[in-house]
Design a protein around this nucleic acid. Sequence first.
DNA 1: CCCTGTCATACCTGGTGGGTATCACCCAGA
DNA 2: TCTGGGTGATACCCACCAGGTATGACAGGG
Lengths: 287, 287
Amino acid sequence: MDALETRELRYFVAVAEELHFGRAAERLGMAQPPLSRAIQQLERRLGVSLLTRNRRGVSLTGAGEVLLHEGRAALDASTAAARRTRRAGGADRPGGPRDRLVLAVKAAASHELLRKLLDAYAAEPCAAEIEVLPCGMCEQPELLRDGRADVALMHAPYNSLAGFDSEELMTEGQIAVLPAGHPLATRKTLCLADVGDVPDLPLARWPRHGTYPPGPGPEIHDQTQLAQLIALGRTMAVFPDSARSWLWAGHTAVPLTDAPPVVTHIAWPAHSRSLALAGLIRTAARL
Amino acid sequence: MDALETRELRYFVAVAEELHFGRAAERLGMAQPPLSRAIQQLERRLGVSLLTRNRRGVSLTGAGEVLLHEGRAALDASTAAARRTRRAGGADRPGGPRDRLVLAVKAAASHELLRKLLDAYAAEPCAAEIEVLPCGMCEQPELLRDGRADVALMHAPYNSLAGFDSEELMTEGQIAVLPAGHPLATRKTLCLADVGDVPDLPLARWPRHGTYPPGPGPEIHDQTQLAQLIALGRTMAVFPDSARSWLWAGHTAVPLTDAPPVVTHIAWPAHSRSLALAGLIRTAARL
DNA sequence: CCCTGTCATACCTGGTGGGTATCACCCAGA
DNA sequence: TCTGGGTGATACCCACCAGGTATGACAGGG
């Protein structure tokens, strides 16, 4: 049973995402006819039809959907192989560059825990060099899969730990971050029902994989913007307790009594076998 | 950051496993010179040296070890993409073949739980077809990774669930399976210390990924052979409680009081998005 | 009915993957 | 020290095929 060529996967994923041969070809930096032919050959090789070419455009068959998912995973694995190999390059020459780990952390996350972790790890004998890679609210899994990161701090239940190994580091409650002047801000505690549907303070919406969930709240793309909008009394947001560290003067934090606790994990690709990573995990587990 | 071509990975993995260009080329069905050149090109492309060609043979650098691991994973992902796409082929045509799931199960496992699961699932409306794939004692992860199976029954702590999603199905104790006439077989219970080092009954050894752990016991490669050797009084083995279902007349099972419990899980690749699979998992979780 | 936008087909070309022949090197053994 | 077997690297050649251009087939929309 033969593996698909990376080129075939790259082509198919482009077409499946664009649902348009011309645009896909442009994105791939090639002409449309060879792309059409390559997809046909792929379909013939697999003995399966992947796309239905109906009048005015293209759509995916069931098998096409499967190949889109699996193909993305395979491409990620392949680029991860290239990246991690490059990063490991030369690290075994004595006197060469030291082992190096890339740790993905939400840019918006509190840095208390992170600092503790980095300090504790740096004190270890023969610790590797840690490069901290700040990322968005839910892109750690992607970074781990395609090899841009080796290990990440994730927050259940916001991030899914599916497919990774992980260790639990910390559990905390959640707070509602409100404009200081708002009536709700005078309360000692709130529950989810209180904050879910406040007409003048619709919950801000974060993008998940590039698209925003529906709802009345404003669309947010970075934390400063959110902080601004809260201070202006336009929106509110729900965060883990440790978010108190970045609150502004115009903000008020009120504990949410019935919000699910947020659990910070350190997570890494399940098949990792690096000594440096094992050391970091051991350090983290001891915190 | 470009993904590596499948061909490059296949070549490198072959060389890294054989540590010999000639044999690797033979295994790949090609001549040695183009293989040498391809590996050189790969090293140049990555800007990293992967192999040290010393006198009399080849060995892996640190980066080479990384690429061997990551490359295997990428190749598995790629063949999984091909296999799963082929399997999904045509399943969306009305009247075409139904959706089909491949369930990997240890050939030696008791079939009580499996039968319950299959019966319950078959009763579901619009259940997919389940193909049961019997496998060895620890190859389920491999089958899931390279797409030969979609879902598996695994036994913690014998199988590692790392990298998969899973649901717990059943917990059971363990027993020692002994020759009926042996003095130990008269005991009501045993503990691990009792069975670990019996001079005339060394524990049988199972292969793990093709190699046998060291020890005095006989090397086993299938369950019938093991049953035979136990009945002959040459060895003993430790199994989950449900293994009682295949005991022979000449065997005696004695509960182990301090052996870790064996937890049967249903496990599947973390990124799966198939409706049929979701149905099977729901059924399993309700058992 | 033509025009436009889409994907497929036909045909050509250059790059490259793979083959054969051979070299360079290292160690073993006489 | 010479020689021979076994290793990976180099030189060179060829055929195939990935990719390009030009064009066709077909469906809607004005």
